[in-house]
């Protein structure tokens, strides 16, 4: 079991280096290349949401990403300290999408096995994503 924490500021140029660091941190056994890719997409989508919606593209917000790599699962926590995300306002996308946008949360739900938002903190939102290892291929629908 290993646990690593990353801290980025809410700037879009931090997304690619974060993805590369995460790929290195999660490169161990138990996840296929496609599953690892799905996890990376999910975390970057979550951070993109924090940058866009929680911090409204302000560049000085903090985002903590915790990677808990266990024998049977990977638990990822993405914590921001900006505006809370109201899940009720996020519609499910039509597929294939006719308009750009709206796929981020759908990807997170599809690529991971569990998704939970915690908005009970005094400030910001904590998103927990869980991906189980050594399981069947990704599900098609969330």
């Amino acid at each position: 079991m290993s646990r690593r924490t990353f801290l980025i500021e809410s700037r879009t140029e931090n997304l690619e280096p974060l993805r590369k660091d995460l790929a290195q941190a999660l490169g161990g056994p138990g996840l296929s290349e496609k599953e690892l890719y799905g996890i990376l997409v999910s975390v970057v989508e979550a951070c993109t949401n924090s940058i866009r919606h929680a911090y409204g593209n302000a560049p000085d917000g903090k985002i903590h990403i915790t990677v808990d790599d266990r024998k049977d699962r990977v638990i990822l926590k993405i914590r921001d300290y900006g505006k809370k995300i109201d899940l009720a306002k996020i519609p499910s996308p039509t597929l294939p999408p006719v308009n750009p946008g709206g796929l981020g949360i759908y990807f997170m739900k599809t690529f991971t096995d569990e998704l939970k938002y915690n908005t009970r903190h005094a400030r910001g939102t904590e998103l927990t994503l869980v991906k189980y290892k050594n399981r069947s291929p990704n599900k098609e629908e969330p």
Binding site: V44, T48, P96, P100, L103, G104
Partner: peptide
Amino acid sequence: EYVDSSGLATFVELYQ
């Protein structure tokens, strides 16, 4: 090596 929903949105816009 990496495309996410923002990249897809760009292609959806181009398609439309």
